[in-house]
Simulated assay, not measured.
Amino acid sequence: MPGDGDPSVRRHAPATARNRDAIAGVLADWLPQAGTVLEVASGSGEHAVHFAAAFPHLDWQPSDPDPAGLASIAAWRDDARLGNLAPPLALDASVPEWPATRADAILCINMVHISPWEATLGLFAGAARLLVPGAPLVLYGAYVEPGVPTAESNLAFDANLRARNAAWGLRDTAAVKAAAGDAGFVFAERRAMPANNLMLLFRRD
């Protein structure tokens, strides 16, 4: 029965409930009609459950590098009992060896700013190995954009991140696009999201 997931290991990310429907609305336009979506850095697993339910025609593959995150994802998955939601993979975007061997789309939410830059470079490199030409790589999070004033809340968020870890912080979209291009991706679309976030769509060249 639903409810089997161990509540003691299930993490809760409050922002998930606030942004999941807005993200799903954009994903409906950007994801393929069939295939497997690899979610890199799934965190608590709440997004994975929500999106697997929202897109029953897609197979959803969550992943995370953190053992506690993997336990949380597994618990949410056990509770949801969704046939298209796979067990989570232990995947560190920054390393060249990924346990995933294929994907028809890749989604990464709120990792780029809460990880070293090497993780973003690894994300693009790994996605390039898995995705076929034209397949989407979707990023969501807070960014700095050239020529666009940065919201005060994002400036404060950036300062907080850098105080916690000097290798973290909001990335400049120009640098992200350049790294994507170096890995064989073409920037396709930008969508402004609530709470001063962005969704960025790249496609494998």
Rank of each mutant, 00 (worst) to 15 (best):
A180K: 03
A174G: 10
K177V: 14
W60E: 06
F157V: 12
L85K: 08
S8R: 14
I106D: 01
A195W: 12
L131F: 08
G141L: 06
A125H: 09
H50P: 01
G169E: 05
A90G: 08
G43I: 02
A15Q: 06
D29T: 14
V37H: 05
P149Q: 11
Y143M: 06
L200S: 03
A125S: 11
P2W: 14
A166M: 00
L131I: 09
P87Y: 02
N196Y: 08
H47Y: 04
A17Y: 03
S115P: 04
V37C: 03
R190P: 07
R102C: 12
L123Q: 05
G134H: 00
N84F: 07
R171S: 00
G35Q: 09
A86K: 15
G147T: 03
N165V: 11
G181V: 02
A156P: 01
G181L: 00
G5H: 07
G69N: 02
E46M: 09
A41H: 03
N110M: 05
A167N: 13
D59T: 15
L123N: 04
D182L: 13
L123S: 01
R77I: 06
D182Q: 11
A86H: 15
A151H: 12
D4Y: 14
A54R: 12
A75K: 06
F185I: 00
T150K: 14
F185T: 01
M1T: 15
W30S: 03
L85G: 02
E46L: 06
V186D: 13
P7A: 13
R162N: 05
A28Q: 11
W98Y: 09
A15C: 14
T173G: 03
A174S: 11
R129H: 12
L107V: 14
A135Q: 10
G122Y: 05
R20M: 10
V112P: 01
A41D: 01
R164C: 09
T16F: 03
V49F: 03
D59A: 15
E145V: 15
P194D: 14
C108L: 01
H57N: 14
E152T: 15
S8P: 12
L170E: 02
A54P: 12
G184Q: 02
T173E: 00
A52T: 04
A178D: 13
A17H: 13
E152P: 07
V144A: 13
A119W: 09
A41R: 00
A128L: 01
G147A: 07
R203N: 04
A179G: 06
V176R: 04
G35D: 04
D182A: 15
S44N: 11
V144Q: 13
G126P: 04
M193S: 07
A192D: 11
A53Q: 12
L130S: 04
D158I: 08
V138E: 01
W98G: 06
P146W: 00
P56C: 12
M199K: 03
A74D: 12
L155R: 15
E152D: 15
L155F: 00
L85R: 07
H12Y: 15
G25P: 10
R10P: 10
V138I: 12
D4G: 12
L155I: 10
A15W: 08
P65E: 01
S44Y: 05
P14M: 09
W60F: 08
A52W: 10
F124K: 02
A135T: 09
A24I: 10
P62M: 04
G69Q: 01
W98E: 02
V176I: 10
T120E: 07
D182N: 05
Y140E: 11
D205S: 12
H57R: 14
A13T: 10
V112I: 14
G181K: 03
S63Y: 02
